[in-house]
Amino acid sequence: MTPFVRQLPAGSAPRRLALLAMLSACLLLAACGFRLKGATPLPFDTLYTNIAQNSSFGVAMRRAIVAASPNTRIVDDPNQAEARLIQLANDERLRQLSIDADGRVEEYELNLEFVFQLVDARGHVILPPTTLRSTREIPYDDTVVQAKQSEITTLFQQMQQAMVDRVVRHLTAPDVIEAFRNAEALPVEAEPSDLSPVSNDPAPTGTPLWGTPSLNPNPGMR
């Protein structure tokens, strides 16, 4: 009597082998500490920031923090926050980089500088004052002033978004998380920071921060 032999569906064995291989690779990556880019939970559940929430920079910052750490809630009252992200400075500058023989600007340099620190509810300095800078160059044509101003505005917005991403990477760094968990061993800020909301957007009229580009009598040139 011929013994019964279960026939596997055609192609099932290769699929099983492929599935096992993928599972083994995932286990190996997990053992090595690999983590997909995404949420990076912060060690605090509530955060206050003096970056005005009605500014585009403030909106982008809050969105990025929540995306990186979904369990973290942004609060309006600093007294209800376990940690405080304090903006110390946010400076946008437009500098003439080169001019032609007729004194017309040929190229501008865009500079963005953001200074911030992170403290806990008791004032322990988790992340000391940190300065982040970004510089971009853009050619200029005074025959299309409006178009160039729009281009400069867009470029500044892109620089601000990139700055937001850099700030979040600092906040979610392992050493910062470890510092918060051991905050008692850290120094307390000498003077309490100004926690008043700070706006970072252009004037309400919509006029760019730098106004209409014009010839600087003392242009910074290379």
Rank of each mutant, 00 (worst) to 15 (best):
98 S>V: 11
99 I>S: 10
102 D>S: 05
107 E>R: 13
107 E>N: 11
108 Y>F: 15
108 Y>Q: 13
110 L>G: 07
114 F>H: 15
114 F>E: 05
114 F>V: 09
115 V>Y: 09
120 D>T: 01
121 A>Y: 15
121 A>N: 15
121 A>V: 10
122 R>W: 14
123 G>N: 01
124 H>A: 09
124 H>N: 14
125 V>C: 15
127 L>R: 02
128 P>W: 08
129 P>T: 03
130 T>P: 03
130 T>W: 09
131 T>M: 13
131 T>V: 14
132 L>D: 05
134 S>E: 15
135 T>H: 12
135 T>V: 13
138 I>T: 13
139 P>F: 04
143 T>Y: 07
143 T>G: 09
144 V>D: 14
147 A>N: 11
148 K>E: 12
151 E>V: 00
151 E>A: 10
151 E>Y: 01
152 I>D: 06
152 I>S: 02
154 T>N: 11
156 F>Q: 04
156 F>K: 05
156 F>I: 06
156 F>N: 02
156 F>A: 03
157 Q>L: 05
158 Q>S: 09
159 M>C: 08
163 M>K: 06
168 V>T: 04
168 V>F: 03
168 V>W: 05
169 R>Q: 12
169 R>C: 02
170 H>P: 00
170 H>N: 07
171 L>H: 00
175 D>N: 08
176 V>W: 03
176 V>G: 00
176 V>L: 03
176 V>T: 07
178 E>L: 07
178 E>Q: 11
178 E>M: 09
178 E>F: 09
178 E>R: 14
181 R>I: 05
181 R>D: 08
185 A>S: 10
188 V>E: 04
190 A>P: 01
190 A>N: 06
190 A>G: 01
192 P>N: 09
192 P>W: 08
194 D>S: 12
195 L>A: 04
199 S>T: 13
200 N>W: 00
200 N>Q: 02
201 D>P: 05
204 P>N: 08
205 T>W: 04
205 T>G: 12
205 T>M: 06
206 G>P: 03
207 T>H: 07
207 T>W: 09
208 P>C: 04
209 L>F: 15
211 G>Q: 13
212 T>P: 00
215 L>S: 04
215 L>D: 01
216 N>E: 15
217 P>N: 11
217 P>H: 14
